[in-house]
């Protein structure tokens, strides 16, 4: 695989290699955070010194459908021993899908000193690098976070409607079956899915995983541009909103478009299809 610096990314510093992480295991200015879909994976073995940030338990409000607030983020950051100056490196299963989701939530609180480990957990494992079950703990830190800023990288329902009227670019990163409306939800759990299937009118179908190679690393900028721009007609100046089912897969695409391809205006609609597909009166296309 080509070195990160040679892949033509807009912001190559947003990625680090597994070797870089291996060389910084004892670096107190770096905190390695694992975020996974599978809740068993972290405790079954993780990078030495890494801490877990769980998408459901740590990043979401336990009652309302929303992310944690400033107080919650400060509590989380202090628990894992972060200061605003700590370089946070995210990695995880599923081609870093959940790592990008955690990265995105951290950006809502302005923790810009953040990176993603290219290739995620899969690449670390395949390289035979050390995994441990012992959980690291760090002294509680001081962390004063700003209020969560939803205005730049997060889109809400009404903003998506306005975006639709303005004929802005939409990227649906779900599977083709979800995009077409063939797959709605788990048969016995309609509350986990949506009452209507399909996609937001005009949305381009670009499944999130197309941005990743089989070893979990990100494709080069040229390869990514061939997908997003060559095949689907996006361009850097577009105002783009990405969505999926709850905003987790689309945070991966948000990361790709913003950091790797340098699109300045990309938002993640975390309400996504579980909101849109249940809304009364909004347009749906199949």
């Amino acid at each position: 695989m080509t070195a990160i610096a040679e892949r033509g990314y807009h912001d190559p510093d947003a990625l680090v290699t597994t070797d870089w992480v291996a060389e910084h295991l004892d670096d107190s200015s770096v905190r390695i955070i694992e975020s996974n879909e599978d809740p068993l994976v972290f405790r079954a073995g993780h990078i030495p010194g890494a801490v877990e940030v769980d998408w459901a338990r740590d990043l979401n409000d336990p009652l309302r459908r929303d992310y944690l607030d400033r107080e919650g983020f400060e509590k989380l950051a202090r628990r894992v021993g972060l200061t605003p100056d700590t370089t946070v490196v995210f990695y995880g299963d599923k081609n870093n899908w959940w790592a990008c989701y955690a990265f995105w939530v951290f950006q809502l609180f302005g923790h810009t000193n953040a990176k993603v480990m290219d290739g995620g957990r899969l690449k670390w494992e395949q390289e035979g690098k050390t995994l441990v079950r012992d959980e690291a703990s760090y002294p509680a830190s001081d962390y004063d976070a700003p209020a969560r800023d939803d205005s730049v990288i997060r889109a809400f329902r009404d903003e998506v409607l306005a975006h639709l009227d303005a004929k802005g670019s939409l990227v649906d990163v779900r599977s083709p079956d979800e995009y077409s409306g063939r797959l709605l939800h788990m048969p016995e759990y309609p509350n986990e899915g949506a009452l209507r299937g399909g996609h937001i009118p005009g949305a381009r179908s670009i499944p999130w995983a197309r941005a990743a190679n089989s070893d979990g690393t990100f494709k080069t900028a040229e390869e990514l541009r061939a997908i997003y721009e060559g095949e689907h007609g996006l361009s850097k100046g577009d105002d783009v909103i990405a969505y999926c089912r709850i905003g987790e897969r689309s945070s991966h695409t948000w990361f790709v478009l913003h950091y790797l391809l340098g699109y300045p205006n990309v938002r993640n609609y975390d309400g996504s299809w579980t909101e849109w597909g249940n809304l009364v009166g909004v347009p749906v296309e199949r």
Binding site: E37, P39, W55, A56, M186, Y189, E192, G193, I246, E248
Partner: peptide
């Protein structure tokens, strides 16, 4: 078995 905090994909 797993509790309710599983993602939809994992649950399916």
């Amino acid at each position: 078995v797993f509790g309710s905090e599983l993602s939809m994909g994992k649950t399916m």
